[in-house]
């Protein structure tokens, strides 16, 4: 009911960058973002507007309903 009790420790705001801009960290974050974008591409775009594995339609047809549903252009 009440707001936070007086004795409870107050959550501290962050005072500076938590994840430092070091090479290994940046590489991990960048690699993860690229992998995520590749998944995005294969679910939504490949074998539609452009195609990595030639002109087959297996990926397009398999993800077909999801592709429409997620808002990607199709057909």
């Amino acid at each position: 009911m009440s707001t936070s009790s007086m004795s409870a420790p107050v959550a501290q705001p962050l005072s500076g960058p938590v994840v430092a801009a070091e090479v290994r960290t940046v590489a991990l974050l960048l690699g993860t973002a690229v992998a995520a974008l590749l998944v995005y591409y294969f679910i939504g775009v490949d074998q539609g507007a452009m195609s990595v594995f030639g002109k087959s339609m297996y990926i397009h047809e398999f993800f077909h309903d999801g592709r429409h549903f997620l808002g990607f252009p199709c057909h």
């Binding site: 994840v19 974050l29 992998a35 679910i43 939504g44 047809e61 993800f63 309903d65 999801g66 997620l70």
Partner: peptide, 25 residues
């Protein structure tokens, strides 16, 4: 197809959120 597609899409977006979150912190 729709199941695999949506789960993979969610996982990819979750990964992007985590990356953006780590940078924003």
């Amino acid at each position: 197809g729709a199941g695999v597609g949506l789960i993979l899409f969610g996982a990819a977006m979750g990964a992007l959120v985590a990356v953006a979150y780590a940078i924003c912190l």
